[in-house]
Simulated assay, not measured.
Amino acid sequence: MAERNATIASSVGLHARPAGLFIAAVNKQSVTVTISKDGSAPINAASILSIMSLGAAHGDVVTLAAEGDGAEAALAELVALLETDLDAVE
């Protein structure tokens, strides 16, 4: 299983618009992706309810995990997305 950490760059954290953009990117991946924060149990990264319940704020570190062919590439893309201020992206 591949794992990567990412620091949330969006000023409002992983809420509303940034969460929607992240979930859209997760759904484009060929592997199932989970996300966790502060050692919590991993949750489905493609679920808006799960993402919103995570409570990931600006500066928080989250852990993404995936398994299978393409896992490393998928995580690299998703980490890059989370480490971008998605509030500034038009």
Rank of each mutant, 00 (worst) to 15 (best):
G13M: 09
G20M: 09
E67H: 05
I35L: 05
T34C: 06
G39A: 12
S50E: 06
A73P: 05
H58C: 04
S10D: 08
L54Y: 07
K37S: 15
V31G: 02
A76Y: 10
D69S: 12
A66Y: 00
V31L: 06
T32M: 14
T84Q: 01
S40I: 04
L54Q: 14
V61M: 04
A88C: 13
I43M: 07
V26W: 00
E83Q: 04
R17N: 13
L14P: 00
D60Q: 15
A41L: 09
L75H: 12
V61R: 01
M1N: 06
E77T: 04
G59D: 11
S53D: 08
G70Y: 10
N27K: 09
D69G: 07
I35H: 00
I48N: 15
D87R: 00
G70E: 10
L86W: 04
L49H: 04
K28W: 03
A19L: 03
E72C: 08
V89W: 13
A88D: 07
E77L: 04
T84W: 01
A46S: 12
A9I: 06
A2S: 04
A16H: 05
E90C: 05
T84E: 00
A74F: 12
K37F: 07
D85P: 01
L75P: 01
H15C: 15
A2P: 03
K37R: 07
D87L: 02
K37N: 12
K37Y: 15
A57Q: 12
A73V: 14
V12I: 11
L86N: 08
S11C: 11
L78R: 02
L49P: 05
V79T: 14
A25H: 09
E72A: 07
R17Y: 12
A6C: 11
A80M: 06
A76S: 14
S40E: 04
G20Y: 09
L14Y: 01
A76Q: 11
G70W: 05
L21F: 09
L81A: 03
E72K: 02
A45T: 01
H15W: 11
V62A: 00
A57V: 09
L75M: 13
T34R: 02
E67G: 14
A80D: 14
A45Y: 00
G59A: 09
A57C: 06
N44H: 13
A56S: 09
G55N: 03
A45Q: 04
